[in-house]
């Protein structure tokens, strides 16, 4: 599959996955009483886990500092979805993963994967549902998991646990942000 085909497929998938009837169904889902609202019902297959891990690593790759996989972001995403989100987001996340499976995300090379995510980012902007779409979920949880992990936080920011004072200062060139 070449890049053009990949992108065409993703567009089709996304169109299918987030069509108006689906969105309506998702809204209805939230207001009806579904047995599927407890975390136990949300589970990823090993393929899906791999896709999540690869997407997280593309968002926050290993560079001269640790990346998303190094600090356990993939498992964090799954735990957070299970513990802190409910059926509509679970549904939205699973549909996003289904799209990724259909375009055989894991078989694509890095450039093709980046192309898919860029398209996904643009397409996500068109979604008006109140349920958080797949891309936003995976991106938010990747950033949260990474920047609040011990290694991710300490590599990215100047960590100050006990400032002891409050001071207005001037920022030096290239100064990292403080984290507390």
């Amino acid at each position: 599959m070449n890049r053009r085909e990949v992108i065409k497929n993703v567009a089709l998938m996304l169109g299918g996955a987030f069509s108006a009837p689906t969105l309506m169904a998702m809204d209805n889902w939230e207001s009806s009483t579904k047995p599927n609202t407890n975390g136990a019902a949300f589970n990823l297959t090993s393929t899906q886990q791999k896709i999540v891990a690869e997407i997280a690593e593309l968002i926050i790759p290993k560079t001269d500092t640790v990346g998303a996989k190094d600090v356990g972001v993939p498992a964090f995403i799954e735990m957070m979805l299970k513990d802190c989100y409910k059926a509509p987001e679970h549904q939205s996340f699973m549909e996003g993963l289904a799209s990724m499976e259909k375009v055989k995300f894991l078989e694509l090379n890095t450039d093709e994967r980046r192309g898919v995510l860029k398209l996904l980012e643009q397409e996500t902007k068109k979604i008006t549902s109140k349920t958080t779409p797949f891309w936003r979920l995976v991106k938010e949880l990747t950033l949260l998991g990474y920047f609040t992990s011990e290694a991710g936080l300490k590599a990215s920011f100047e960590y100050v646990q006990i400032p002891g004072k409050l001071e207005l200062i001037k920022l030096k060139p290239n100064q990292k942000a403080y984290a507390y």
Binding site: I60, K176, A177
Partner: peptide, 12 residues
């Protein structure tokens, strides 16, 4: 997303 994005977020 990616390396530059990651680097950018370390600044205020």
């Amino acid at each position: 997303f990616g390396a530059d994005f990651k680097q950018g977020l370390t600044k205020p």
